Amino acid sequence: MGTRTRRPGTGQPQRLETALLLRAYSAGLFPMADTREAVDVFWVEPRRRGLLPLEKFHLPKSLAKVLKQGRFFHTQDMAFAQVIRACAEAAPGREQSWINASILDGYSRLHAEGHAHSIETWDADGRLVGGLYGVRLGSAFFGESMFSRATDASKAALAHLVARLRLGGFELLDTQFLTAHLAQFGAMEVKRTQYLALLDAALGKSGDWGRIDREAQVPGVGSGVAGAGAAAGAAVAGFGAAGRDLVALPALPVALLAALGPSGKRIVQLLSQTS
Protein backbone atom coordinates (compact mmCIF):
# COMPACT_ATOMS: atom_id res chain seq x y z
CA MET A 1 0.00 0.00 0.00
CA GLY A 2 2.68 2.52 0.90
CA THR A 3 4.44 4.24 3.75
CA ARG A 4 2.73 5.56 6.83
CA THR A 5 2.74 9.23 7.67
CA ARG A 6 3.45 10.21 11.28
CA ARG A 7 5.09 13.06 13.12
CA PRO A 8 8.40 11.51 14.28
CA GLY A 9 8.78 11.02 18.02
CA THR A 10 5.40 12.40 19.06
CA GLY A 11 2.84 9.71 18.28
CA GLN A 12 0.66 12.57 17.03
CA PRO A 13 -0.90 12.57 13.56
CA GLN A 14 0.97 14.61 11.00
CA ARG A 15 -0.91 17.46 9.37
CA LEU A 16 -1.98 16.46 5.87
CA GLU A 17 -1.14 19.48 3.76
CA THR A 18 -3.70 20.23 1.08
CA ALA A 19 -1.04 20.65 -1.61
CA LEU A 20 0.22 17.15 -0.83
CA LEU A 21 -3.31 15.72 -1.00
CA LEU A 22 -3.94 17.31 -4.38
CA ARG A 23 -0.64 16.04 -5.77
CA ALA A 24 -1.47 12.56 -4.51
CA TYR A 25 -4.89 12.54 -6.18
CA SER A 26 -3.43 13.77 -9.46
CA ALA A 27 -1.01 10.82 -9.33
CA GLY A 28 -3.70 8.25 -8.48
CA LEU A 29 -3.10 7.90 -4.73
CA PHE A 30 -5.29 8.61 -1.70
CA PRO A 31 -4.81 8.34 2.10
CA MET A 32 -6.51 6.00 4.55
CA ALA A 33 -6.11 5.10 8.23
CA ASP A 34 -6.37 1.69 9.87
CA THR A 35 -8.99 2.95 12.33
CA ARG A 36 -10.60 6.24 13.30
CA GLU A 37 -8.35 6.28 16.39
CA ALA A 38 -5.11 5.70 14.44
CA VAL A 39 -2.49 8.43 14.60
CA ASP A 40 -1.07 7.75 11.16
CA VAL A 41 -2.26 7.29 7.58
CA PHE A 42 -1.05 5.24 4.65
CA TRP A 43 -1.21 5.93 0.93
CA VAL A 44 -3.19 3.64 -1.35
CA GLU A 45 -2.89 3.00 -5.09
CA PRO A 46 -5.17 0.06 -5.98
CA ARG A 47 -4.06 -2.32 -8.72
CA ARG A 48 -7.66 -2.34 -9.88
CA ARG A 49 -9.63 0.88 -9.52
CA GLY A 50 -13.35 1.32 -9.07
CA LEU A 51 -15.07 3.70 -11.48
CA LEU A 52 -18.68 4.69 -12.06
CA PRO A 53 -19.07 5.62 -15.76
CA LEU A 54 -21.19 8.77 -15.72
CA GLU A 55 -23.01 8.15 -19.01
CA LYS A 56 -23.73 4.53 -18.09
CA PHE A 57 -25.09 5.21 -14.62
CA HIS A 58 -27.98 2.87 -13.85
CA LEU A 59 -30.84 4.52 -11.97
CA PRO A 60 -32.95 1.77 -10.34
CA LYS A 61 -36.69 2.21 -10.89
CA SER A 62 -37.31 2.12 -7.14
CA LEU A 63 -34.88 5.00 -6.57
CA ALA A 64 -36.31 6.99 -9.46
CA LYS A 65 -39.73 6.64 -7.84
CA VAL A 66 -38.39 7.88 -4.49
CA LEU A 67 -36.76 10.89 -6.16
CA LYS A 68 -39.89 11.80 -8.14
CA GLN A 69 -41.98 11.61 -4.97
CA GLY A 70 -39.85 14.39 -3.47
CA ARG A 71 -39.11 12.58 -0.20
CA PHE A 72 -35.77 14.35 0.10
CA PHE A 73 -34.25 17.79 -0.27
CA HIS A 74 -30.91 17.94 -2.08
CA THR A 75 -28.05 20.36 -1.35
CA GLN A 76 -24.31 20.65 -1.86
CA ASP A 77 -21.61 22.02 0.46
CA MET A 78 -24.19 22.97 3.08
CA ALA A 79 -22.90 20.70 5.86
CA PHE A 80 -19.50 19.34 4.85
CA ALA A 81 -18.25 18.91 8.41
CA GLN A 82 -21.38 17.04 9.44
CA VAL A 83 -21.20 14.76 6.38
CA ILE A 84 -17.57 13.72 6.79
CA ARG A 85 -18.07 13.09 10.51
CA ALA A 86 -21.15 11.00 9.78
CA CYS A 87 -19.11 8.97 7.30
CA ALA A 88 -16.59 8.30 10.07
CA GLU A 89 -19.22 7.21 12.59
CA ALA A 90 -19.84 3.60 13.56
CA ALA A 91 -22.84 2.06 11.83
CA PRO A 92 -24.40 -1.41 11.71
CA GLY A 93 -22.00 -3.62 9.77
CA ARG A 94 -19.34 -0.90 9.84
CA GLU A 95 -18.05 -0.50 13.37
CA GLN A 96 -14.69 0.95 12.33
CA SER A 97 -13.65 3.66 9.90
CA TRP A 98 -10.57 4.59 7.90
CA ILE A 99 -11.37 8.28 8.50
CA ASN A 100 -9.18 9.48 11.39
CA ALA A 101 -8.36 12.91 12.84
CA SER A 102 -5.73 13.67 10.18
CA ILE A 103 -8.18 12.95 7.38
CA LEU A 104 -11.00 14.92 9.03
CA ASP A 105 -8.69 17.90 9.39
CA GLY A 106 -7.06 17.68 5.97
CA TYR A 107 -10.28 17.32 4.01
CA SER A 108 -11.97 20.08 5.98
CA ARG A 109 -9.18 22.38 4.80
CA LEU A 110 -9.53 21.05 1.25
CA HIS A 111 -13.21 21.98 1.47
CA ALA A 112 -12.40 25.47 2.72
CA GLU A 113 -10.11 25.88 -0.31
CA GLY A 114 -12.84 24.75 -2.71
CA HIS A 115 -11.36 21.36 -3.65
CA ALA A 116 -13.56 19.05 -1.55
CA HIS A 117 -17.34 18.95 -1.72
CA SER A 118 -20.29 17.35 0.01
CA ILE A 119 -23.72 16.32 -1.21
CA GLU A 120 -26.43 16.32 1.45
CA THR A 121 -29.80 14.59 1.64
CA TRP A 122 -32.41 16.03 4.02
CA ASP A 123 -35.75 14.54 4.99
CA ALA A 124 -39.17 16.21 4.98
CA ASP A 125 -38.53 17.52 8.50
CA GLY A 126 -35.26 19.21 7.47
CA ARG A 127 -32.98 16.65 9.14
CA LEU A 128 -29.68 15.56 7.58
CA VAL A 129 -30.24 11.87 6.79
CA GLY A 130 -27.62 11.05 4.17
CA GLY A 131 -24.77 12.34 2.11
CA LEU A 132 -21.34 11.86 0.60
CA TYR A 133 -18.12 13.79 0.13
CA GLY A 134 -15.19 13.77 -2.24
CA VAL A 135 -12.47 15.73 -4.01
CA ARG A 136 -12.72 17.62 -7.31
CA LEU A 137 -9.82 18.15 -9.72
CA GLY A 138 -10.33 19.24 -13.33
CA SER A 139 -13.18 17.12 -14.70
CA ALA A 140 -12.55 14.31 -12.20
CA PHE A 141 -14.41 13.71 -8.96
CA PHE A 142 -12.97 11.31 -6.39
CA GLY A 143 -15.74 9.90 -4.21
CA GLU A 144 -14.53 9.25 -0.68
CA SER A 145 -17.36 7.98 1.49
CA MET A 146 -21.12 8.16 2.06
CA PHE A 147 -23.55 7.61 4.91
CA SER A 148 -27.25 6.99 5.35
CA ARG A 149 -29.67 7.36 8.24
CA ALA A 150 -32.84 6.78 6.23
CA THR A 151 -33.77 4.30 3.53
CA ASP A 152 -32.41 5.41 0.13
CA ALA A 153 -30.82 8.59 1.53
CA SER A 154 -27.25 7.79 0.43
CA LYS A 155 -28.53 6.44 -2.90
CA ALA A 156 -30.32 9.73 -3.46
CA ALA A 157 -27.08 11.59 -2.71
CA LEU A 158 -25.24 9.46 -5.27
CA ALA A 159 -27.90 10.11 -7.92
CA HIS A 160 -27.64 13.84 -7.19
CA LEU A 161 -23.86 13.68 -7.54
CA VAL A 162 -23.98 11.87 -10.89
CA ALA A 163 -26.59 14.30 -12.25
CA ARG A 164 -24.42 17.24 -11.13
CA LEU A 165 -21.30 15.77 -12.71
CA ARG A 166 -22.99 14.85 -15.97
CA LEU A 167 -24.52 18.30 -16.44
CA GLY A 168 -21.19 19.90 -15.50
CA GLY A 169 -19.24 18.03 -18.15
CA PHE A 170 -17.19 15.87 -15.79
CA GLU A 171 -15.50 12.83 -17.31
CA LEU A 172 -14.41 10.68 -14.38
CA LEU A 173 -16.12 9.53 -11.18
CA ASP A 174 -13.56 7.56 -9.16
CA THR A 175 -15.07 5.26 -6.51
CA GLN A 176 -11.64 3.92 -5.42
CA PHE A 177 -12.90 0.34 -5.00
CA LEU A 178 -15.72 -1.67 -6.54
CA THR A 179 -18.40 -2.78 -4.07
CA ALA A 180 -21.62 -4.71 -4.53
CA HIS A 181 -23.50 -1.57 -3.48
CA LEU A 182 -21.90 0.50 -6.25
CA ALA A 183 -22.11 -2.27 -8.83
CA GLN A 184 -25.92 -1.96 -8.86
CA PHE A 185 -25.47 1.54 -10.30
CA GLY A 186 -23.09 0.42 -13.04
CA ALA A 187 -19.73 0.72 -11.28
CA MET A 188 -16.85 -1.29 -12.73
CA GLU A 189 -13.14 -2.01 -12.24
CA VAL A 190 -10.26 -1.02 -14.50
CA LYS A 191 -6.55 -1.79 -14.34
CA ARG A 192 -4.23 0.81 -12.86
CA THR A 193 -2.70 1.71 -16.25
CA GLN A 194 -6.13 2.32 -17.77
CA TYR A 195 -7.20 4.34 -14.76
CA LEU A 196 -4.14 6.57 -14.96
CA ALA A 197 -4.84 7.27 -18.65
CA LEU A 198 -8.45 8.20 -17.85
CA LEU A 199 -7.29 10.33 -14.92
CA ASP A 200 -4.75 12.18 -17.04
CA ALA A 201 -7.41 13.00 -19.64
CA ALA A 202 -9.88 14.18 -16.99
CA LEU A 203 -7.32 16.39 -15.27
CA GLY A 204 -6.68 18.17 -18.57
CA LYS A 205 -10.27 19.44 -18.71
CA SER A 206 -12.46 21.50 -16.42
CA GLY A 207 -15.77 20.41 -14.94
CA ASP A 208 -18.49 22.89 -13.98
CA TRP A 209 -19.53 21.87 -10.45
CA GLY A 210 -22.15 24.60 -10.03
CA ARG A 211 -23.96 24.50 -13.38
CA ILE A 212 -26.91 22.55 -12.02
CA ASP A 213 -27.43 25.21 -9.34
CA ARG A 214 -27.30 28.13 -11.78
CA GLU A 215 -29.79 26.49 -14.13
CA ALA A 216 -32.20 26.00 -11.23
CA GLN A 217 -32.40 29.73 -10.60
CA VAL A 218 -35.51 31.08 -12.31
CA PRO A 219 -35.15 34.68 -13.62
CA GLY A 220 -36.46 37.11 -11.08
CA VAL A 221 -36.00 34.84 -8.08
CA GLY A 222 -32.24 34.37 -8.21
CA SER A 223 -31.68 36.78 -5.36
CA GLY A 224 -34.23 34.91 -3.29
CA VAL A 225 -32.40 31.63 -3.86
CA ALA A 226 -29.10 33.26 -2.96
CA GLY A 227 -30.65 34.75 0.13
CA ALA A 228 -32.05 31.39 1.16
CA GLY A 229 -28.63 29.84 0.72
CA ALA A 230 -26.97 32.51 2.82
CA ALA A 231 -29.58 32.12 5.56
CA ALA A 232 -29.28 28.33 5.67
CA GLY A 233 -25.49 28.55 5.56
CA ALA A 234 -25.55 30.95 8.49
CA ALA A 235 -27.84 28.55 10.35
CA VAL A 236 -25.38 25.68 9.96
CA ALA A 237 -22.42 27.88 10.87
CA GLY A 238 -24.32 29.12 13.90
CA PHE A 239 -24.47 25.63 15.37
CA GLY A 240 -20.92 26.17 16.65
CA ALA A 241 -19.74 23.31 18.82
CA ALA A 242 -23.13 21.63 18.52
CA GLY A 243 -22.59 21.44 14.77
CA ARG A 244 -19.74 19.02 15.39
CA ASP A 245 -22.09 16.69 17.23
CA LEU A 246 -24.48 15.15 14.72
CA VAL A 247 -26.88 14.12 17.45
CA ALA A 248 -27.25 17.77 18.38
CA LEU A 249 -27.61 19.00 14.79
CA PRO A 250 -31.03 20.71 14.57
CA ALA A 251 -33.30 20.43 11.57
CA LEU A 252 -33.14 23.20 8.96
CA PRO A 253 -36.20 25.03 7.65
CA VAL A 254 -37.52 23.09 4.67
CA ALA A 255 -38.45 26.33 2.91
CA LEU A 256 -34.74 27.12 2.73
CA LEU A 257 -33.67 23.62 1.74
CA ALA A 258 -36.17 23.48 -1.11
CA ALA A 259 -34.54 26.53 -2.71
CA LEU A 260 -30.96 25.33 -2.48
CA GLY A 261 -30.59 22.35 -4.76
CA PRO A 262 -32.12 20.38 -7.61
CA SER A 263 -35.44 18.67 -7.05
CA GLY A 264 -35.70 14.91 -7.18
CA LYS A 265 -37.64 15.20 -10.44
CA ARG A 266 -34.85 17.30 -11.97
CA ILE A 267 -32.26 14.70 -10.92
CA VAL A 268 -34.27 11.92 -12.58
CA GLN A 269 -34.70 14.05 -15.70
CA LEU A 270 -30.96 14.63 -16.01
CA LEU A 271 -30.14 10.97 -15.44
CA SER A 272 -32.70 9.90 -18.04
CA GLN A 273 -31.14 12.00 -20.76
CA THR A 274 -28.77 10.29 -23.20
CA SER A 275 -25.87 11.92 -24.96
Rank of each mutant, 00 (worst) to 15 (best):
Q273N: 05
A232H: 02
P13F: 02
P53L: 06
L270V: 15
Q217Y: 12
P92R: 11
A251T: 10
L104V: 01
T151G: 03
A258D: 13
T18Y: 03
K68H: 14
V190S: 14
L16Q: 00
A81P: 07
L178V: 05
A258N: 08
P60Y: 09
G11H: 06
H74I: 04
A27R: 15
A183H: 12
A241L: 11
A27Q: 15
A226D: 14
D125Q: 14
Q269C: 08
A116Y: 06
F142Y: 08
G169N: 11
L271K: 06
D208M: 04
R48P: 00
L16W: 00
F30W: 02
T5M: 11
G233T: 10
Y133M: 03
A27K: 14
K68M: 14
A86Y: 00
F239E: 13
R23D: 12
G168M: 06
Y195L: 02
F72S: 01
T151P: 01
I103P: 02
W43K: 03
L257C: 10
A234S: 10
W43M: 02
S148Q: 09
W43N: 04
R47Q: 15
H160A: 07
L54C: 06
S97K: 04
G114W: 06
R85E: 14
L110I: 07
A197F: 00
C87W: 00
V268T: 07
L249D: 04
G130P: 02
G126Y: 04
S275K: 13
S97C: 07
A248T: 06
F57E: 08
S263G: 14
S108P: 05
R136S: 15
L161D: 04
Q217P: 01
G227Q: 08
A197N: 04
A79G: 11
Q69N: 11
V254G: 01
S102I: 00
E113W: 01
L172Q: 08
P31F: 03
P92K: 09
L20H: 09
R266D: 14
G114I: 06
Q176S: 04
L59G: 03
P250Y: 03
Y107F: 14
G207P: 10
V236K: 05
G168I: 05
W122C: 00
V162W: 10
R49E: 07
A81Q: 13
H58S: 14
T75D: 08
K191T: 11
Q273S: 12
L199N: 09
R127N: 10
L178R: 13
E55P: 01
R211Y: 01
R7F: 02
K155Q: 10
G240K: 15
D208W: 04
D200C: 05
E55M: 06
L246Y: 09
M78F: 13
L165V: 09
V218M: 11
D34F: 11
A197V: 07
D40T: 02
R109I: 02
A150R: 12
